[in-house]
Every structure is written in structure tokens, then in C-alpha cells.
Amino acid sequence: MSRQSNRTTDSKKMNSELFTLTYGALVTQLCKDYENDEEVNKQLDKMGYNIGVRLIEDFLARSSVGRCQDFRETADVIAKVAFKTYLGVTPSVTNWSPAGDEFSLILESNPLVDFVELPDNHNALIYSNLLCGVLRGALEMVQMAVDVKFVQDTLRGDNVTEIRMKFIKRIEENLPAGDE
């Protein structure tokens, strides 16, 4: 009887332009459907969240990293392993808050925005907001509630793209109700 073929370690190559353009088409369609930037941001975050809760399983299976001991380790894994695996870039982790519960991911380049210019009538649009949702969804599945938002964006004329992440709380596992 034949075994399942093992997952090949080298990830499948995909054309990054196709990925960038597909994402662009998605955002464009959302802009058409909602006509209100706030609502588009919300939808992108929601989609990202749904991606994140599944992507985390793929990430854990692929990378075989264990549970992180603290938020700093989490930050490192996100930057060096997760972003590297899925977007091919390695953001730097900086601007730690004194309490160690908040940090920034600085992206020198953001593959999602390679061909993008924000038109004037969409100045409230957070184009890459999907990423916030992904991070929030993925971390929620490993018992971490976080708040994620863009604070700088090259699309709005900033020098770098900065994602701010704030640790809110650990989600404790509970015994299902009805058990003594």
C-alpha cells in the first residue's frame, strides 16, 4: 500500500505579479461593491481574518515551530518565518513599547502594492488591510488576542509601511460547559 506522498519542502513557485494583480482586482471589486472606504477596510479585515484562521494551521504544519514563550518570540516568528514564507519579505521588528506588549513591523517593500497608486477619491482606503485581518485571525487561533493596524503606508506617501501590533490578552482554554 502506498504512503501519502510527503509534502515537498520547497514551496511551490508562484508568479508574484499574478498574486499582486489578483489582490488588486479583489480590492477594486470591493471598492465598486461598497463605494465607502471604511466599509471596504472592514471587508478586507474580515476576509483576512477568515484567511488567518486557516492559514495558521498551514503555517504550523509547514514550519513546525512550537508555541512561543513570549510576545517577543511571537514577533520574531511573524517577521522572520511567516512573512518570509507567505510574502517573501522580512519586515523588521521595532518600536517596542516599554511594557513589551506592542511593536511595529516595518516593511521596506510591500509586495501587495507593487503597481498601486491610490486615487484621490479613495484616501481613506487602507489598501493592505487584509494583512491585519490575517495576523489577527492567525494569532487568535494560538490563544492570543491582538490589535493590528496600519500606522504608515507607502501608498499614502510615507517612507515605509508600518503595521502596529498590540497584545491584548491570552485566550484561556476552558473545559466545555456542562462538565463537573
Binding site: 501519502q4 510527503n6 509534502r7 484562521v53 486557516r54 494551521e57 498551514d58 504550523l60 504544519a61
Partner: peptide
């Protein structure tokens, strides 16, 4: 571990019709 990474993730997580 194999059941998780090669069967659960591949056939359940990546299957959009399977609700987690």
C-alpha cells in the same frame, strides 16, 4: 504529526467547504 500536517491541513483546512 503526519495526520495533522499532511492530512488534516491538506484535506480539511484547505478545503473551503469544510467548516472549521
Amino acid at each position: 504529526q503526519h495526520i495533522y500536517s499532511n492530512l488534516y491541513v491538506e484535506n480539511i483546512v484547505k478545503n473551503p467547504t469544510c467548516i472549521l
